[in-house]
Design a protein around this nucleic acid. Structure first.
Length: 862
RNA sequence: GCCCGGGUGGCGGAACUGGUAGACGCAAGGGACUUAAAAUCCCUCGGUCCUUGAGGCUGUGCGGGUUCGAUUCCCGCCCCGGGCACCA
């Protein structure tokens, strides 16, 4: 029977069928084991890209596979729909962010449906809807009550011309991306989440996430940046007060010759006050504050400082240490003050050289003597303490503890722990975000919006120009309100929340997306579904999104909303999709259709084939999923994304590779429709009761081996590429089989078994073509509802095995023996083998290694 | 600079616990079918040498080591990718 493979027709047919039957709709069922599979939800930029296709294809395979294994699978999809691009679109094209966002969602939803992903669309959510963010506002209020949300002064990038705050990525080389004005640092009162309250738990939790990739955990640990050290007290020389510093190198205390304070530190102006240097210091501080934060903390910025005409005392040598303000000391790490040991810290060394400050060597390297006159850089390695009073002669690493004890005994400090992690600043001076439910009253101060007044709805009637500050602040009806405390006039908080807040709990909301009762999360549903069993997404979220989600989950736990500590039990970070770039010397990067015969179709110049890079619009090396669907269908696009490389690795796009995947689906289609359909439609799969021989036995063995292989690859390895390879081998075997007679029911039943295996094993990967062929075979139950196939160990095992014969570790020959052959017999056969015999003839056999079912290695010497 | 990954044919990638390196696919070459082409089906395909064989040698970034045996384990180096980076 010749029926052409028409992917578009059958794909739309089955997509409609799944939708009509609500095939993938789920609800809690305590009788069944749950499996929560989640892919990172997208920002609705307008169109899905290949990265989405890959991410969601991986998720869909796992989801459909687990479903066939009998799990009650939750597989939802939604939209991370607040964010800057919507505002930019509004500014550039005059479309309202909400309209732009919703259009994009509608379009992308259509695209996702067209890919055949098995989502429970009844749980769809969009974070820009009050229906979603009102609960986030409630959690904010609760966090505020517990001190987990608080306000403090912090700096932002500010463009004086646009009168607006810029995100870090909007600052290009210290200039505003839109108008190229100098960006300055501006101080604002902003809201923070006290993530540092959970820092130790978040760090320790890293040890209890065996299902996460090690490198993600490493990144998180580094980001948290725990370091053990010492907080040391330096009394002021004039007896008025003291300075505290954090150090991990108290072993070098005898070499500390001056003190450094961060330029922004309040102590700087305090110390300089009324002194000759006051003006100079003020100017220095102003200068540092004007410098772009990114620039200042990048690379090797020139070390600069100014003397504050003040001194403190070294707590062990009692020598006077001049105090300087310095540009390279961080105000928000440790105490903002640093003891400078120029001989053993490179930064301090450079600073001391520039300002001619004293150097004292306190660590002597094992094989040379340091001389302060001739040193050209700090010595930062280990050694023996010198010039260190009672600690002379000790190894510096061992002295760490001894000196700490000594300092404690003289009341000059204590052991402490420092973290790199800072509290999470969530205020955004932007429109398109969730409003922060707070009110400012002249009488009552900062007042939370009462729960009954939630949600604070983001007003729709705003004017967006990109200039003149926050649109919400200019929106009188929104900004001007009455105080919930005294009823007097008050102002609303007009900052909105960081969009990372929405993505820190959307996975909880999916468990009960329509639940509209306080607190917006249904504990029963959460207890059933959470945690997410498998989370899949890009490595670019390895730190922030994942860390914030882990934090927020603990906050909700402590608020009694949820019962788990960790939101994601297993994490798979998929690689990027890359493609080669093409560049014309004159016209820059080109789309493939702008190149003909290796030349630019505009100017005819030779096109340079560039590096393979992550697909991006600016490099013009993108592939449009709509185009793929139009040309090959969704199944081919899915199959290629899964076949080209293992999920965690980068995928190199290849148009020819896509052709190959399309051909493979065509091969499955033809071997069934053209070769066997009519003959096996009414034949049951082989029942295993008749003994088989020859080709049929081999085919059946291959069938069962393939089921075993694919199951292993999908179950615990997520190796879709090798799973597909295995099915390809089975299909190849079907092609190579001698066509049995139409009347040979036994042979046809074995073929039917093989064909069914191909379809069952491929459903998760290419769900449409397999459903269609399954139906053509006369099956009534849709494949999506079929159980995963099982294999018979007996049938899958080889009856003959190849034994490799080695002499002195080199492969020299092979023999085939029955699988259960005795060791002695195999060894004898090995020695008797012609080539082996020649090689060992007349030589002394020193050793004979036998690896069961694998090889014989005969070691000889002359 | 520090911390993670990773280097295998012309290409994407296999080899799961130290045991046949290169599965599967792409590209290439050859054949069948066809008036022809496309499509399809089949075969060959790491390098090299000769005596062309059921052949020898060589080959998983480089140099060593452990082992009967190393893509796999250990030490040293080179290159590529990523994260952090003036964190005291």
């Amino acid at each position: 029977m010749n029926i052409k493979y028409n992917p578009w027709e059958i794909e739309e047919k089955w997509q409609k069928n799944w939708e009509a039957n609500k095939t993938f709709h789920v609800h809690e069922d305590p009788a069944r084991k749950k499996y929560y599979l989640l892919e990172m939800f997208p920002y609705p930029s307008g169109r899905i890209h290949i990265g989405h296709v890959r991410n969601y294809a991986i998720g869909d395979v796992v989801s459909r596979y687990k479903r066939m294994r009998g799990f009650n699978v939750l597989h939802p999809m939604g939209w991370d729909s607040f964010g800057m691009p919507a505002e930019n679109a509004a500014i550039e094209r005059g479309i309202h962010p909400a309209a732009w966002t919703n259009d994009n969602i509608a379009n992308m939803k259509k695209q996702l449906k067209r890919m055949g992903f098995s989502y429970d669309w009844d749980r769809e959510l969009s974070t820009c809807e009050p229906f979603y963010y009102k609960w986030e506002q409630l959690f904010f209020l609760w966090m505020y009550e517990k001190g987990l949300a608080y306000k403090k002064t912090s700096t932002v990038n500010w463009c004086p011309k646009c009168q607006t705050v810029l995100a870090n990525e909007q600052v290009e080389a210290g200039l505003c991306w839109r108008c190229s004005s100098d960006v300055i640092e501006k101080t604002l009162d902003q809201w923070f989440f006290r993530i540092t309250a959970y820092v130790e738990e978040l760090l320790e939790g890293c040890d209890r996430l065996p299902g996460w990739p090690e490198r993600v955990l490493t990144m998180q640990r580094n980001w948290i940046g725990k370091s053990h050290g010492f907080e040391m007290i330096f009394p002021m020389a004039d007896g008025k007060g003291e300075i505290k510093v954090f150090t991990t190198r108290q072993d070098t205390i005898y070499g500390a010759t001056f003190m450094l304070v961060a330029a922004e530190h309040p102590l700087v102006l305090e110390l300089a006050k009324g002194k000759e240097c006051e003006k100079e210091v003020q100017e220095f501080v102003e200068k540092i504050k004007r410098q772009d934060k990114n620039l200042r903390t990048s690379d090797y910025y020139e070390k600069e400082g100014v003397f504050l005409e003040s001194y403190c005392l070294n707590p062990v040598t009692h020598k006077k240490m001049p105090i300087y303000a310095a540009n390279f000391v961080l105000a928000d790490y440790g105490t903002g003050c640093v003891m400078a040991v120029p001989t053993h810290d490179q930064r301090d060394f450079e600073f001391a050289k520039k300002y001619n400050l004293p150097l004292i060597v306190v660590i002597q390297p094992p094989n040379r003597a340091l001389n302060v006159q001739t040193m050209t850089e700090a010595y930062v390695d280990e050694g023996i303490l010198v010039n260190s009073g009672p600690f002379n002669g000790m190894e510096n690493m061992k002295a760490l503890d001894a000196i700490a004890d000594h300092l404690i005994s003289i009341n000059r400090g204590q052991r402490t722990i420092q973290y790199r992690l800072r509290d999470w600043g969530i205020s955004r001076q932007r429109y398109w975000g969730a409003p922060i439910p707070m009110v400012y009253c002249d009488k009552c101060g900062t007042v939370p919006v009462p729960e009954k007044d939630l949600p604070v709805v983001l007003p729709m009637d705003v004017e967006l120009t990109g200039e003149g500050g926050s649109p919400l602040a200019r929106h009188k009806a929104f900004a001007e309100t009455s105080c919930p405390g005294c009823g007097g006039p008050a102002r609303r908080e007009t900052d909105t929340m960081d969009t990372f807040v929405e993505s820190s709990w959307y996975f909880d909301r999916f468990c009960c997306a329509t639940h509209d009762v306080k607190p917006g999360l249904d504990r029963k549903a959460l207890d059933y579904w959470m945690p997410v069993d498998q989370y899949i997404g890009g490595i670019e979220h390895a730190i922030l999104h994942l860390l914030y989600s882990r934090f927020y989950t603990r906050v909700l736990r402590d608020l009694g909303v949820i019962g788990v500590d960790e939101p994601f039990a297993n994490l798979l970070t998929q690689g990027m999709v890359c493609k080669e770039t093409m560049k014309c010397p004159e016209h820059g990067f080109l789309f493939p259709e702008e190149v003909s015969d290796g030349k630019c179709s505009t100017c005819g110049k030779e096109v340079i084939i560039g590096k393979t890079e992550k697909m991006s619009k600016s490099l013009r090396n993108i592939v449009d999923p709509d185009y793929l669907v139009k040309k090959y269908g969704a199944d081919t696009a899915r199959a290629f994304c899964l076949f080209a490389s293992p999920p965690e690795k980068d995928l190199e796009w290849s148009d020819q590779g896509v052709e190959g995947s399309f051909r493979f689906l065509g091969r499955i289609w033809r071997i069934i429709t053209e070769e066997y359909l009519e003959d096996i439609r009414d034949v049951a799969p082989f029942d295993g009761k008749t003994p088989l021989e020859g080709d049929l036995k081999n085919l059946r063995r291959k069938t069962h081996q393939t089921i075993r292989k694919v199951t292993g690859d999908l179950e615990d390895r997520f190796r879709f590429n090798t799973a597909i390879s295995a099915v390809m081998e089975l299909v190849n075997a079907l092609y190579l089989l001698n066509r049995p007679d139409k009347g040979d029911k036994l042979a046809l039943s074995v073929i039917r078994e093989a064909v069914e295996a191909v379809l069952l094993l491929m459903v998760p990967i290419v769900p449409h073509i397999t459903e269609e062929l399954w139906e053509m075979l006369g099956e009534k139950t849709p494949l999506a509802d079929m159980p995963w196939p099982t294999w018979d160990r007996e049938v899958a095992s080889e009856e003959e095995i190849t034994i490799v014969l080695q002499v002195n570790g080199k492969v020299r020959s092979r023999i085939t023996v029955p699988a259960d052959e005795e060791e002695d017999k195999i060894k004898a056969l090995a020695r008797a083998e012609e080539k082996i015999g020649k090689l060992i003839e007349g030589k002394q056999v020193v050793k004979e290694v036998y690896v069961p079912r694998k090889l014989v290695n005969i070691v000889v010497k002359d």
